[in-house]
């Protein structure tokens, strides 16, 4: 029933920020026709009267009181940084705006 084209995969790879070779996209598109048929079975029983479960436990209102806890030292905070400068994370130029 459901299937994905190479272009669909390209669009999804863009959303997921993953560079992909032509072959990779074609292969994934092929695999997905199989996988999607398998997973689409959920629709057989997912009728309107069934409530969705997004969490296994019926918990609610779990809060933390507004108290300051110690932060990491800037050294620790930046310890994994691929590049840093002036106690900031240095990253390549950001194109486009949010």
């Amino acid at each position: 029933m459901s299937s994905l084209s190479r272009d669909d995969v390209a669009k999804l790879a863009g959303l997921a920020r993953i560079e992909m070779s032509e072959d990779e996209m074609v292969n994934l598109a092929n695999e997905f026709t199989v996988i999607l048929d398998a997973v689409a079975r959920v629709q057989e029983v997912a009728t309107a009267d069934v409530k969705p479960t997004s969490h296994p436990l019926p918990l609610k209102n779990i809060f933390r009181s507004d108290v300051v806890a110690p932060s990491l030292s800037p050294e620790d905070a930046l310890s994994g940084a691929p590049a840093q400068e002036e106690q900031r994370f240095r990253v390549p130029q950001i194109l486009g705006e949010e």
Binding site: Q43, T53, S54
Partner: peptide, 15 residues
Amino acid sequence: DAYYGSAQKVRTLIT
């Protein structure tokens, strides 16, 4: 709705 939403409903049924 067709995928993630339906899967969450199946989760309810399994529970």
